[in-house]
Design a protein around this nucleic acid. Structure first.
Length: 420
RNA sequence: GUGGCCGUAGCUCAGUUGGUUAGAGCGCCAGGUUGUGAUCCUGGAUGUCGGGGGUUCGAAUCCCCUCGGUCACCCCA
């Protein structure tokens, strides 16, 4: 009878079904509420962009160079499914030039062609925020505070906030050259996998997991020693702001993020509850050169992204943010075979109550079971007797109490019972 | 992209050294006075054992390929 399915969700993608999907609804409600309180509005932008939008911002990064879902449409346009959330928002700002500071949040799928594992999918989903148009370090503080408030609201506690400061693009480039020279001089001592990054991404060598490399890097030149005065002051201001808010953090000079556009403040919330390699649950930073790269005027910006799947895994690991199946107000049981259930559910629903019913003329016993399975508070029973007398039997499924009322009073009565 | 482990009913799994019609629990459906949910009892449906090929008299059990999952690397949310 049951045939073998011909299709399943593509590799690295997932279906989210009830009741699990109720957690997604709740999570999005939490995030949008936090964003609203911080003064951020929702931005919606296309799930695909001209591939140049992404190439422009990270030609040399893995996310763009080898993990992009790119394709050509029937009109011959070169497009790509968004691998991350910031570039499309930046592009939208350049296109529409809304007044600054432009504070927006988003919830969106993100696509990366890579080998899936727990907490890493080919289509995952991110919530995030961006603030474009202000270089004030207090914006950095606000953004980090927003991320902090979000994780806190979910109930997550087992994480640490890690910061690093990259300085201006010039600082970053200068330091990159210094580090590169230092690494080249020691190339023979560095494991091949890391040595290969020296020419292309010297900064990426910093966050190597290889113990040999890590030991060597202890003596490497530090970004912090190569920042100009203004950059140093920016970093100090961010730290002062976080201290004023009582948000704990640590500075990690080896923190390097996957996208190259970051300047000044770089931050990650790393979970210690997850126990696997995917410990970053929220990460972002300042990108003061990005708008220019996309053809706009020199304009600063900062934001973060946070993976929903990974955050929910972390919630599981910490045992927080459980969402019980939402309860149903009424389940209508109709054994007359007529239209009683059709009209009664309609009356209840129009009154703002939640109501459901069985189909296919099932037995009263089966319908009662269905009511329980639907987590209904009340069963509203219409049998031959009730139908004949214009009444309905209202059964409180939690207390096994039942009364019969006039059907005209049903909404009023149900509200009364639910309120007590 | 590389490597390790795994893939049996909707779910969680058992299937002995390859041997007759592949099992359990849960779930689902029906019935146990033709109007009532728990528990209990009875009965029932669903699997070409991820897919393909090979070895064999015979394979869920062995081999190869493939697809998917998972873990690590890479990278990242």
């Amino acid at each position: 009878m049951v045939e073998r399915p011909d299709f399943r969700a593509p590799k690295g993608t997932q279906d989210v079904l009830p009741p699990e999907s109720a957690r997604w609804e709740a999570l999005l409600a939490v995030f949008s509420d936090v964003a609203r309180r911080f003064g951020y509005g929702l931005v919606q932008s296309p799930m695909f962009e001209d591939i140049g939008v992404f190439q422009r911002i990270g030609e040399g990064t893995d996310v763009v160079a080898k993990e992009m879902y790119d394709f050509e449409d029937k009109g011959g346009r070169a497009l790509a499914l968004r691998p991350e959330g910031t570039a499309p928002v930046a592009r939208a700002w350049v296109q529409h030039r809304p007044a600054v500071p432009w504070k927006v949040w988003y919830a969106t799928p993100a696509f990366r062609y890579e080998q899936p594992q727990a907490g890493r999918l080919r289509q995952h989903h991110q919530v995030g925020v961006e603030c474009i148009g202000s270089a004030d370090p207090h914006v950095d503080v606000e953004i980090i505070a927003l991320g902090h408030a979000y994780l806190w609201a979910l109930g997550l506690r087992q994480w640490r906030l890690v910061l690093n400061f990259m300085g201006t693009p010039a600082d970053r480039a200068a330091y990159g050259a210094i580090l590169q020279a230092w690494l080249r001089a020691r190339a023979s001592e560095i494991p091949p996998a890391d040595a290969a990054k020296i020419d292309t991404h010297p900064l990426r060598v910093l966050d190597s997991k290889d113990p040999v490399t890590a030991a060597l890097l202890v003596d490497a030149p530090r970004m912090a020693d190569h920042l100009d005065g203004a950059s140093r002051a920016h970093g100090e201001a961010v730290q002062d702001g976080l201290r004023a808010l009582g948000i704990n953090f640590e500075i990690d000079p080896s923190l390097v993020r996957g996208l190259d556009y970051y300047t000044h403040t770089l931050f990650e919330f790393q979970s210690s509850a997850l126990g696997n390699a995917q410990s970053t649950i929220l990460g972002g930073g300042r990108y003061d050169g990005l708008i220019e790269q996309l053809g706009g005027p020199a304009t600063p910006g900062i934001g973060f992204g946070s993976g929903i799947e990974r955050v929910l895994l972390t919630c599981d690991a910490e045992g927080v943010f459980d969402r019980a199946t939402p309860r149903l107000d009424c389940f209508v049981i109709d054994t007359t075979g007529g239209t009683a259930a059709v009209t009664l559910t309609q009356v209840l629903r129009q009154a703002g109550l939640s109501a459901d019913r069985s189909f296919d003329d099932r037995s009263m016993k089966a319908q009662m079971k269905a009511a329980v399975k639907a987590s209904a508070r009340l069963a509203l029973i219409v049998g031959e007797q009730e139908a004949a007398t214009g009444t309905v039997a209202v059964r409180d499924l939690d207390h096994a109490e039942q009364t019969t009322i006039d059907i005209a009073d049903v909404v009023h009565h149900v509200r009364q019972v639910l309120d007590r």
